[in-house]
């Protein structure tokens, strides 16, 4: 073992006192840059527009009523809100994180004093902005075509925000296991299709055996869809369409409680798991 000892201390070793910059300030600043980049990379714009393709099949089928004032078109359009968060969260986020890690952009940010919390928060904020824009478009469509307006807007926004956080964190976690942008996209396909299939529209969860239905209900997407639809339409849809009852105000919030809890639990779990996120592409790869 070789030791190289320090020379005499220099005359001035008084260090300037430095405050760490707050997480929020860093997060907001990074979000601003995110918008600049979003605008300059057409790919990102494309990925923001991607969820809208889920609206195409709507024009093909003849709608019929499932509940008073709710036909299949309305149900699909309200299904779309959390799907927007899922699509941007699982298609854009893993790709961007894998690429930025590979190009050492994330490492560069970390080594210059940016916290993981600020980086993750900026992604949540920018993805949420995109989701909000899509939400406004679809809400306008619902109002124009069907004269349907959100019944419980606060609950609706809270659940949409929670869904976005969960999907972004999941996207970052997926990126952690990918070597590069391409593999991130391939890996994220599996949870993406799994979650979309089990989001209530394609597989009739009500008709499945209890055990399986309950397991699906513990995954984040079914609670997210039911929260969005219930809050938007003013029905308690948490036990499925067949058991739906009109609900508003406190009743609706109480009915929403378990689903909100499931999303919060996912958020906490994923936040804890993200402590293992590797910022340096060479580590363990």
């Amino acid at each position: 073992m070789t030791t190289a000892t320090a020379a005499t201390p220099p005359a001035s070793d008084s260090q300037t006192p430095r405050k760490p910059v707050s997480v929020l300030r860093q997060a907001l600043r990074l979000t601003r840059t995110e918008f600049t980049l979003f605008y300059r990379y057409q790919m990102a714009l494309y990925s923001a527009a991607l969820p809208l393709i889920f609206l195409l099949p709507l024009s093909v089928f003849e709608p019929y009523d499932v509940l008073p004032g709710v036909d299949t078109t309305v149900l699909s359009l309200t299904w779309f809100f959390p799907i927007a968060a899922l699509t941007v969260g699982l298609s854009h986020v893993p790709n961007v994180y894998a690429i930025r890690r590979e190009r050492l952009i994330l490492k560069r940010l970390r080594v210059s004093g940016v916290t993981p919390a600020a980086i993750f928060t900026s992604t949540v904020l920018s993805v949420f902005s995109v989701v909000v824009v899509q939400t406004v478009l679809v809400a306008a469509l619902l109002a124009a075509l069907k004269e349907v307006f959100p019944t419980a807007p606060v609950l609706f926004l809270v659940s949409l925000a929670l869904t976005t956080v969960v999907m972004v964190l999941l996207g970052v976690l997926i990126a952690n296991f990918a070597r590069n942008g391409e593999s991130a996209q391939i890996i994220s396909m599996v949870p993406f299709f799994l979650l979309i299939m089990l989001s209530g529209l394609f597989v009739p969860v009500d008709l499945l055996p209890d055990g399986i239905a309950m397991t699906i209900g513990l995954l984040p997407m079914l609670p997210a869809v039911r929260l969005a639809q219930s809050a938007y339409l003013g029905y308690d849809l948490f036990d499925g369409i067949s058991n739906a009852e009109a609900a508003t105000g406190v009743d609706l919030w109480l009915a929403a409680g378990p689903s909100l809890l499931i999303l919060v639990a996912w958020m906490v779990l994923l936040t804890l798991l993200l402590r293992i996120f590797q910022w340096d592409p060479r580590v363990n790869k």
Binding site: P20, Y41, L104, I105, R108, L109, S112, G113, T115
Partner: peptide, 17 residues
């Protein structure tokens, strides 16, 4: 965090800025 900085062997910068 605020007291350390580095030039990495390969630079990681936002290309479009």
């Amino acid at each position: 965090r605020p007291r350390v900085n580095a030039v990495l062997q390969h630079s990681g910068l936002f290309e479009e800025l």
